[in-house]
């Protein structure tokens, strides 16, 4: 993954600072989502958060997951939230209860979660995502380390130019995420598609069954 970041840095001016900016903005939006008293505004901030995270994912290179984020979370779930909130018409005064007592609990939960997950996650993931979110300087050090010790930057640049130039054979060498996922899902894992389609069918039938007007 570090290599990947490095590649983008060399070729298209990707800077690690952008990622940190996005991190900061999403933390900010997350806090706003919780703090805000008005549920509609809160959901709007949530949508902003989702868009932000999707942008981050696309920037890092997970195109498909980023697009799916926008489609599923922003396009469907949050809009549904928004509509329901507008329809059920909650009075804001009812929501104005004190939640300050829960703050220590929230902090404790978050710390515990990070501790446990940090234990269980494999080392290469923890090093690169969670730690580098927390410290910007550390990741910079890491990048320079890579420059000096392992790679000759100029050679790498040439190689990358060769690999990702806009030739016609580009699509043969590196298919996009969507293409490769589709390729796998429709060949060796087609059974999963069938099972999930049955689940969707059940969901549709169920929604009709429990809402249909019986005589």
């Amino acid at each position: 993954m570090t290599i990947h970041l490095l590649n983008d840095y060399c070729t298209n001016g990707f800077k690690i600072e952008f990622v940190d900016m996005i991190y900061l903005v999403s933390i900010f939006l997350g806090i706003l989502t919780i703090v805000n008293r008005n549920p509609i505004v809160s959901v709007l901030f949530l949508i902003g958060l989702f868009v932000n995270v999707a942008g981050l994912l696309i920037l890092v290179g997970y195109n498909f997951i980023g697009l799916a984020y926008i489609l599923v979370y922003v396009g469907a779930v949050s809009i549904l939230f928004l509509f329901i909130l507008m329809l059920i018409n909650i009075r804001i005064s009812e929501l104005l209860n004190e939640t300050n007592n829960d703050i220590p609990l929230a902090v404790l939960t978050v710390l515990l979660f990070f501790y446990i997950i940090g234990q269980v996650l494999p080392t290469n993931l923890t090093d690169n995502t969670i730690v580098s979110t927390l410290s910007n300087t550390f990741s910079d050090e890491r990048n320079t380390e890579l420059h000096n010790d392992f790679f000759n930057l100029r050679d790498l640049k040439q190689q990358i130019d060769y690999a990702s130039s806009h030739g016609w054979d580009n699509s043969l060498i590196e298919p996009t995420h969507i293409a490769s996922i589709g390729n796998i899902m429709y060949t060796s894992y087609s059974m999963w598609l069938i099972v999930s389609s049955i689940i969707l069918l059940l969901g549709m039938v169920g929604a009709i069954v429990i809402t249909i007007k019986q005589k």
Binding site: W192, V195, G206
Partner: peptide, 19 residues
């Protein structure tokens, strides 16, 4: 993944059956 999908298929049905 098949375990998860089949558990979901089974459980959704059960929730619907209850309601």
């Amino acid at each position: 993944v098949s375990i998860f999908l089949s558990i979901e298929l089974q459980s959704y049905g059960l929730y619907l059956l209850c309601t």
